[in-house]
Nucleic acid binder design. Structure first.
Length: 469
RNA sequence: GGUCCCAUCGUCUAGCGGUCUAGGAUAUCGGCCUCUCACGCCGGAGACACGGGUUCGAUUCCCGUUGGGACUACCA
């Protein structure tokens, strides 16, 4: 039983798809709560109605589900929780920790300009702070932040961090249209939902003192904070669209396994000694905030692909059959049924870094008529092997058992009689049967294809070579 | 500009004062295995940003420089 009630949360704003930075934040929150036997809450921060969309919300939920990051509560939608924010604002107002401000945006804008032209910090000057103003159309509510002193917290990954309160100004809590601002909504929600650990990107470090001040003004206990380093693009800049694949769903469509993406994301910024490969269970077991690094990191696709290959190899055939099916559909290949797919997956898993590759590798089996790869055709389907292939065809016709062992017997005898090495015939045969120069072992290929198709394709290749002359 | 954060191989990282001629992973380059591809195995090349301290001793602690990032909105 956990001594402490641990509640973490992931609060994406639905202004776009779930990208890998967000996914990692979600993952760390999820891992932490799962390990500690706590709760993981999902909250959609859609207070900015201009930029939020239902489509984005759906994409985020779909991503979370695909990743297997299940939540215990929610999704809560901030757009439907106004009473909570209003209550918090009213409380602050009633205990004189907040006040109405009548300054217009024009005036504020002008003041900011003046201040920065004089080289001063462009912060709110507290004009309405002590005027005791009441609500008025177009007015906002601001927090009365302390004029001096420091606000500090002990970040679970970065250590102690402190800010002079002088640096902070009286931030807006309620906009002139009556809606709550981000800072107020976050704090009010986190209090309401009983969040005890705020694990988020370190782009929020500077927001933390503002939020702490709201907690304090409200007289509520603070959560613990852990700020994760950012994920950067290859140019070391913050991840953005121009860095290619960003959306979690793109990785799914690329043929990644969710566990592999999770593994890769976990290792970006967190480590457990020299271990690189983790199953989901191992991640839950070994994860710790203490081992989260402080420096931002670049996301490496190649490493993900390597990990993906490993996770594919580690996966059960049955699981892979299920995962592979949509990718076969996408290639327009006929589904040959589970029994056949189990065999296919078994020989393809060792040579596939993605499910897309795996489906591609299975193509020759399920495609009615194969195309010869140009290079393979030129290099291996030449008249000088015509004789050999014809003789082989004869042998294969006589082979009763089209299994790996049966075929191997036929070949051993054939090669011995012809006094040649397998390599002499394997490549031409491979191109004849698969159209490609790379494939699983030639005996596996023949067994899977079955006698009829093998003979048919071999005959076709022979005709094909004959027309070359 | 101000505030805050960060800094080990190309990339992800281990390292929490001596064990570092700095370890692992990936990528890369050789080689082995071998019917091709892949897997696997063996090996090579490749990093402590710089400058001061502290210390008998700094990759590890402190300060500065440089570089990067975040925030600085009635966006989240």
């Amino acid at each position: 039983m956990p001594q402490e009630n641990i509640v973490t949360r992931f609060p994406p704003s639905p202004t776009g798809y779930l990208h890998i930075g967000g996914a990692r934040t979600a993952l760390f929150n999820w891992l932490f709560s799962r390990q500690k036997g706590g709760k993981f809450v999902l909250r959609i921060e859609d207070t900015d109605r201009e930029r939020s969309s239902e489509e984005a919300t759906r994409a985020i939920l779909e991503s979370m589900e695909w990743l297997g990051l299940d939540w215990d509560e929610g999704p809560y939608f901030q757009s439907r929780r106004n009473d909570i924010y209003d209550a918090a604002i009213e409380k602050l107002l009633s205990i004189a920790q907040a006040y109405h401000c009548h300054c217009t945006t024009e005036i504020l804008e002008q003041k900011r300009k003046e201040a920065s032209s004089k080289g001063l910090k462009p912060k709110y000057d507290g004009q309405c702070r002590d005027l005791g103003l009441g609500p008025a159309p177009g007015s906002v509510v601001r927090l009365k932040t302390p004029l001096n002193g420091v606000t500090q917290f002990n970040d679970l990954v970065k250590g102690p961090i402190s800010f002079d309160n002088e640096e902070l100004d009286d931030l807006i809590l309620r906009r002139s249209d009556g809606s709550p601002t981000y800072h107020l909504a976050v704090v009010a929600d986190d209090i309401n939902l009983g969040i005890t650990y705020v694990i988020r990107g370190d782009d929020h470090v500077n927001n933390t003192p503002r939020q702490i001040l709201i907690y304090k003004a409200l007289g509520e206990p603070l959560p613990r904070y852990a700020h994760l380093p950012m994920i950067l693009g290859p140019d070391k800049h913050r991840l953005s669209k121009r860095h290619g694949a960003m959306s979690v769903l793109e990785y799914r469509d690329m043929g990644c396994l969710p566990h592999a993406l999770l593994n890769s994301l976990a290792r970006l910024g967190w480590s457990h000694g020299d271990q690189e490969k983790f199953t989901r269970e191992e991640l839950i077991e070994t994860f710790s905030l203490e081992n989260v690094g402080k420096a931002a990191g670049v996301f490496n696709l190649e490493k993900l692909l390597d990990l993906n290959g490993w996770h594919i190899r580690e996966s059960s055939d049955q699981f892979l059959v299920k995962e592979l099916t949509p990718f076969l559909d996408r290639l327009g290949l006929e589904n040959p049924g589970e029994e056949m797919l189990m065999k296919v997956v078994a020989i393809l898993k060792v040579r596939s870094k993605t499910l897309v590759e795996m489906a591609e590798g299975a193509r020759f089996l399920f495609q009615k008529e194969i195309d010869y790869d140009k290079k393979g055709d030129d290099k291996f389907l030449k008249p000088n092997v015509l004789r050999l292939l014809e003789e082989l065809l004869g042998e294969l016709e006589k082979t009763p058992e089209f299994t790996h062992t049966g075929l191997e017997k036929t070949f051993t005898a054939f090669l011995e009689e012809k006094e040649i090495k397998l390599r002499k015939i394997a490549q031409p045969l491979r191109v004849a049967l698969t159209g490609k120069t790379a494939s699983p072992g030639i005996f596996e290929v023949m067994e899977l294809l079955g006698k009829d198709k093998v003979l048919e394709r071999l005959r076709r290749a022979i005709t094909h070579i004959q027309t070359k002359e």
